[in-house]
Design a binder for these strands. Structure first.
Lengths: 384, 384
DNA sequence: TTGTAAGCGTTATCAT
DNA sequence: ATGATAACGCTTACAA
């Protein structure tokens, strides 16, 4: 463990620091011990050196015993282990990271954790990572490439053993990721992915998601279905709009370009959505239904409509992606496309650990595609 | 930066690794360079050693130049800085952490990031931390002490410079925190705090929050107001129930113990809330209003009522804490107690940085109390 | 002003 | 089976 400094009290001379290695561990953190006076000072954690000193052996012996090396006698091993337990020895992960250039931690980059979809994915990731001995470091890009680059830099400088990422909306140039990938950093992409990097990825069948959403509306009799989408750079955007267009075609409806609005920042700036909705609603022929192709767009859209006094589904129908656990508390008429976020997280970390722990170069990459669910709203929205 | 390993290709002999310090930086990550053949291998980041070698000076000189030490000639400093820039040198934070026992990062422990309140607090923390040169490491306790202890252990082993924490519901023994605090780790508590640790804290006026909520219902004419609360161990629980009780008293209503239900896990287990609501609704004299004293309890309560077909506010009134950004999309009759989460995060990190960066021991601790807002629902809920 | 060397905690290599 | 030593990247007395 580290040594925290009590401001104003200095005990920096290593020769002066004392570690009372006789004291028994009183708690998980008792590797810091009190000095003879009652002032708190800078404490050193118990290190292998302390164990070595206490036992009169060398640090290498201690290290070997702790690592369960074969070249050690059972007796000394037992002795060391016992002593380590008594002193509540905890290996210093920072020293290990420096030495081994790995940290037993994996980095996760998402645009925002306040988004239910992403926090659920993170929960999926953590649920498996911890069991496998990895810690998870979360970084938010806030939909900014600049920030994404900083995050990646931070994570890689912290020697993360692998990376799980959903690209920011601004990210059209992925050279920063490509660089890390080229250097051999195991990467798994999810949600917003790119083909330019040859690695595992986890997505939902976005095409299917919007296809079914659109089909649902078409079958209900809606004739002028608009779509609000994210930045055109994002993989999810083209896929989701693809499903929308194909469904229209399949049902013999013409695709109307003015019925599609993009929000470059995916609704991080609320006015984007407002503008999009307003533009749609002020068309000569305003839509009778809207498909919102992301969580943030769905809620933003609903908010805007509500604020404008436009009733869903009476005045207009709305179907959208949504992963909030309180979705069911919202407008009961709302039909949502639900993504299996937890499973996506689990799949991502599993694939990543596979990459990390594989001894030989991986050449076959998997694009794991999970199936979204169309959850039909309670109130029917039938027109015509 | 660290060196990532390309599986199957080994270049572990330091003598064999080459760093072409002539190559110009091509991107932020180009501190890794390619070998003469096209295979990717284990790359070493540019270190001060490389700069020293390139310039024919010692590493200490380089270090001094980079640290902007006074004991260095302007010329060499310029030279070193230029070279560092050219080679795209990036200091290795792990080496620094090991040496300095600090990491320029701060740890944040919350029960769950999927909770809007906490992710907003985290956003507040990050917004300031990054500007001040600190990274934020997020850890979730999932309302488990065991996990909280693990998180603290992880964070302290990573040499975080400070800690911001909201206690888990299971945490009645805070010795694990106390230990870290005694060792001089700067700690700021928020939301769920404890007096046992003498340090800064940030909370909302919980008493006021429920007092006003209760008062609101009383003024509307409700006579049998129940409350659903978290574990009795939590600071927020007693404070929030305090406001509820006092408001009842102020309005001449008798406090009825059977109208108060506790959810030990604060609704992490949904059945807890269901049970609580069910028990309330099956009393001989069921309540005509419920106050839910946390975000999770509010949504859980609403869900349960909805599933049981109990209409809010027609059959029963509901007022609760809620910080979701989509609160307005829920039942418009809902009156909520809103906490200034972003501000709480900002206050917490500011107080923490104050602790971290203060040169002298801090003896005066501040309990910063922010004011919650009662946001009255759209539909009036008048009875009597 | 600059260089040398020790040290942060650990492991790997090479002796013994 | 065990110990001495070097090394990971960096800073900082101490020497020169």
């Amino acid at each position: 463990m580290c040594g925290f400094r009590m401001p104003g009290i200095v005990a920096d001379n290593p020769g002066v620091i004392r570690k009372n290695i006789q004291l028994p561990a009183s708690s998980i953190f008792s590797s810091y011990l009190y000095l003879h006076n009652d002032a708190y000072m800078k404490f050193e954690a118990v290190t292998i050196k302390d164990i070595a000193k206490a036992l009169g052996v060398s640090t290498s012996t201690v290290s070997r015993a702790l690592r369960d090396s074969y070249e050690i006698s059972p007796e000394t091993k037992e002795l060391v282990l016992e002593c380590a337990r008594k002193l509540n020895y905890m290996p210093n992960p920072i020293a290990l990271s420096l030495k081994e250039r790995r940290s037993r931690s994996i980095g996760v980059v998402v645009c925002e954790i306040a988004n239910s979809f992403f926090s659920q994915v993170i929960n999926g990731i953590e649920s498996i990572a911890y069991d496998r001995g990895y810690n998870v470091i979360i970084a938010q890009s806030n939909e900014s490439v600049e920030r994404e680059i900083m995050d990646l830099h931070y994570l890689s400088s912290r020697s993360v053993d692998g990376l799980i990422i959903s690209l920011s909306t601004e990210t059209n140039d992925i050279s920063h990721l490509q660089d890390l990938h080229n250097k051999g950093l195991p990467i798994v992409m999810f949600d917003r992915v790119t083909d330019e990097i040859k690695t595992h990825s986890v997505v939902v069948d976005n095409f299917k998601g919007t296809y079914e959403a659109t089909e649902y509306l078409l079958q209900k009799g809606y004739k002028r279905i608009a779509a609000i989408a994210n930045s055109e750079f994002l993989s999810i955007t083209s896929e989701r709009l693809g499903g929308y267009k194909d469904a229209l075609q399949a049902y013999g409806q013409k695709f109307n370009k003015s019925y599609v609005k993009h929000c470059f920042y995916g609704g991080m700036v609320f006015s984007e959505i407002e503008d999009a909705v307003n533009k749609l609603m002020t068309l000569k022929q305003p839509p009778d239904a809207i498909i919102a192709t992301s969580d943030k767009l769905t809620t933003g859209c609903l908010k805007t409509l509500m604020r404008r006094g436009i009733k869903v589904p009476d005045d207009i129908a709305l179907v959208g992606f949504l992963n909030s656990d309180i979705a069911e508390l919202m407008n009961p008429a709302l039909t949502v496309v639900h993504q299996p976020a937890l499973e996506m997280g689990k799949a991502a970390i599993e694939l990543l650990l596979q990459l990390i722990e594989s001894k030989r170069p991986v050449t076959q990459f998997e694009k794991r595609v999970l199936t979204p669910t169309l959850v039909i709203g309670k109130s029917a929205m039938d027109v015509n």
